[in-house]
Amino acid sequence: MEVKISEQGGTMTAAFVGRLDTPASLEVSRDIQPLLDNANKTLVLDCKELSYISSSGLRIFLTIRKAAAAKGGKVIVKDITDDIRQVFMMTGFLNLFEVRNG
């Protein structure tokens, strides 16, 4: 699992690559600090190469979403696969995020 963070203008993008299972999420929870620090901006969570997510991974997404709500930023979840969309739908996460595909 890898998170690639880049910044351009007022937008910070985090590309999640691989499987966000419980042990991976423990590591990633440290990597997302720049996103939490910039939660007043637009945060794009690029999920094109995110192949799996468990509740621990969802917790990371929710943490980012809560930070943005608190600091007045915006979160866009980009290019989720059908499998991840299914998990988002099941857990009500589709209602919590602006999801953009394509």
């Binding site: 809560k66 998990v87 857990t91 009500g92 919590l96």
Partner: peptide
């Protein structure tokens, strides 16, 4: 079990695990 209808601000961070088991 987690309440999956809550808004982001109100959602607790935990409780999704067993919800997923039951749903799947």
């Amino acid at each position: 079990e987690a309440d999956v209808t809550l808004a982001a601000e109100d959602r607790p961070i935990g409780g999704l695990g067993i919800f997923l088991v039951r749903n799947i």
